[in-house]
């Protein structure tokens, strides 16, 4: 039963990801990306981590993709559809893709793929926590406090940067 759901979610996720880059209409490709994120959220739930699944749903599907759609709506879609499909960036993207593929195959082959599961389990049992939400909170604010704070500063810089950029371009107009 669980395996069935895993293959369902995984297949749809991969198909949606392929559609993101093959579909002509940008709105459809954003929709395919939303579908892909949704399936990934389902996979998190299957991995007994409902908090991560819901967070994925909340942040990526619920907020970030709405901004994506917002931006795509303001494009001239009819022109984008008839654009040449292989832009000059393809010559850069192709080698980068090949390198990533080789890296993934190498990592998979050496069995080093994925998160260090044992370590996480050790942390959870050390803190004696059953629920995934509490475990994530405790680990985030003790063991990984420093990276957590760094990320919040980076995000703050991005916020301020966005405001600064828009204000500047308005003055130039």
């Amino acid at each position: 039963m669980e395996l069935l759901f895993f293959f369902l979610f995984a297949t749809v996720a991969v198909l949606a990801a392929v559609m993101v880059v093959t579909v002509r209409n940008p709105v459809h490709s954003v929709l395919a990306l939303i579908l892909c994120f949704f399936q990934v959220a389902c996979l998190f739930v299957l991995l007994r981590s409902p908090f991560l699944g819901i967070a994925q749903l909340f942040i990526y599907v619920g907020a970030i993709m709405i901004f994506f759609l917002f931006a795509v709506f303001l494009l001239d879609i009819k022109r984008t559809i008839h654009q040449e499909r292989y832009s000059r960036w393809a010559s850069f993207a192709l080698p980068a893709g090949i390198i990533m593929l080789v890296e993934i195959v190498l990592l998979l082959g050496r069995g080093k793929f994925g998160a260090p599961v044992q370590e996480q389990e050790a942390v959870a049992s050390l803190l004696n926590l059953g629920k995934s939400t509490e475990a994530i909170g405790a680990v985030l604010f003790t063991k990984y406090l420093y990276p957590f704070e760094i990320i919040s500063v980076v995000l703050l810089v991005a916020f301020v940067g966005a405001v600064v950029l828009t204000v500047k371009s308005k003055q130039e107009d």
Partner: peptide, 25 residues
Amino acid sequence: DMNVGVLYVLAIGGLSIYGIILGGW
């Protein structure tokens, strides 16, 4: 009976907006 019920409800409720946005577009 979900452990993350409140978050689930808020997250899923937010998704309905896609129908409105896409219907509009």
